[in-house]
Amino acid sequence: MRPHLRFAAARLLPLLGLFLLAACAPLRLREDNATLAAQREREAAVLARTQWQFSGRIAVSNGEDGGNADVEWRQDGADYDLRLRAPVTGKNWRLHGDARSAVLEGVREQPLRGANAAELLAREANWQLPVNELEYWVRGLRAPGARAELTFDEAQRPAKLLQAGWTIEYRDYFSDAEPALPRKVFATKGKHRVRLFIESWQRE
């Protein structure tokens, strides 16, 4: 990763240690008619709220390099606004757009534009962050357009999701939300890792 794009990589190893110690959600139930019906109801309820946001921490690794940041994601319909702040340097990035376009600010003097947020981040930061799919995955939903395989926990909440070559694990949920929303989301694709620790949700 280019030096000016690193987000406190030296702080990544202690954080990854916490990830490894985190308890995994129990994987008990495969897809069947009852669990899929419950998931469809859950997805309909979550998707009905088109304005939402969360704040927390994110860590990204490509197998050789990585970094972590404070994160805030705001969603208004198809429009997203993702803000990242390095905990040590205070360096700020902003990624915003929709499914057809993306703007990345804070990396260079002028905003960078692209047709796809994931491709823009991969090119400029060497980060594999599937932004358009993550909009759904972070809420425990299947992203549209690609076949998905689900495993559920004992409360019929998604525990593992396989989609678009990624494995998404839901390690914890907020129990005070209805439907329940994820607290810890770990995504893996080959050598690439994305770890989200969500501290708070807001929905309208």
Rank of each mutant, 00 (worst) to 15 (best):
R2P: 03
A8G: 02
L13Q: 05
L15R: 06
G17V: 05
F19K: 07
L20S: 09
A23E: 06
C24Y: 00
P26D: 10
T35D: 00
L36I: 08
V46F: 04
A48G: 13
A48N: 13
T50R: 15
Q51S: 11
W52C: 09
I58C: 05
I58D: 02
A59C: 06
V60P: 03
S61A: 13
D65Q: 13
A69P: 05
D70L: 14
V71E: 13
R83L: 08
R85A: 05
P87W: 07
P87N: 02
T89Y: 00
W93H: 03
G97R: 03
A99C: 03
A99R: 12
S101C: 07
S101K: 10
E109T: 09
E109K: 08
Q110R: 11
Q110D: 02
P111A: 00
L112K: 00
N116I: 13
A118F: 02
A118W: 07
L120N: 02
L121V: 08
A122N: 08
A125R: 02
N126W: 08
N132I: 15
N132E: 15
L141F: 11
G145Y: 05
G145E: 08
L150F: 07
P158C: 03
P158K: 00
A164K: 14
A164G: 10
E169D: 11
Y170F: 12
R171A: 14
D172A: 15
D172K: 07
D172V: 02
A177P: 00
E178Q: 09
R183W: 06
V185H: 02
K191E: 15
R193C: 06
L196G: 04
I198K: 01
Q202W: 10
